[in-house]
């Protein structure tokens, strides 16, 4: 896979109509957040001031966020500002996969496997990773955390689960 996702960059070099692409996207993101929140809280009652309902605060806050978003977007078309930088894809992707793998395996197979899996998957996030070194490191970190968290600090973390056979 490609190492970085190319996002079209707008160097404010003359012809481009957009002066600050970072603020443009930031403004649009805020508008999106506001829209989602307004949509999700549409069916909540606002109540009256003497008995404020659950919908008042989310809707008021979302509206304000939307207004700031509009202002940012408008400003980005007029004033100069920072361009949207490069977005990494590899880092976020493998970090998320590693965390998700941990979440999926901690309750089903236990830390003894969830630990190494999380370390190995996360290793893919960096181009500097050395596979052999990482495998050894994964085992060491897992052993260490089992000793520390389970046996020294007595946290109720499952260590190893083999269905119908063994729960440690």
């Amino acid at each position: 896979m490609s190492e970085r996702a190319e996002v079209p960059e707008n160097h404010a070099a003359g012809r481009s109509a957009i002066q600050a692409s970072q603020n443009l996207i930031a403004g649009l993101a805020l508008i999106a957040i506001a829209a989602i929140a307004l949509g999700a809280s549409a069916d909540l009652g606002e109540g009256r001031f003497y008995a404020v309902g659950p919908g008042l605060l989310p809707r008021a806050v979302a509206t304000l966020i939307g207004l700031i978003g509009l202002a940012l977007t408008a400003g980005s078309l007029i004033r100069k500002g920072d361009a949207l930088g490069r977005w990494g894809l590899r880092g976020p992707l493998f970090l998320f996969l590693s965390v998700a793998a941990f979440a999926l395996s901690i309750r089903t197979v236990g830390l003894a496997l969830a630990g190494p899996v999380a370390v190995l998957v996360s290793g893919a996030a960096s181009p500097e990773t050395r596979p052999k070194e990482l495998i050894v490191f994964a085992l060491v970190v897992t052993a260490l955390s089992i000793c520390l968290f389970r046996y020294l600090l007595h946290l109720p973390i499952p260590i190893l689960i083999i269905p119908n056979v063994l729960v440690l």
Binding site: F102, I106, A118, G123, A125, F137, A138
Partner: peptide, 13 residues
């Protein structure tokens, strides 16, 4: 390159 996987695992735990 070794520190961040350890940070991740400890944080997950």
């Amino acid at each position: 390159r070794l520190m961040y996987p350890a940070i991740l695992v400890f944080s997950c735990i």
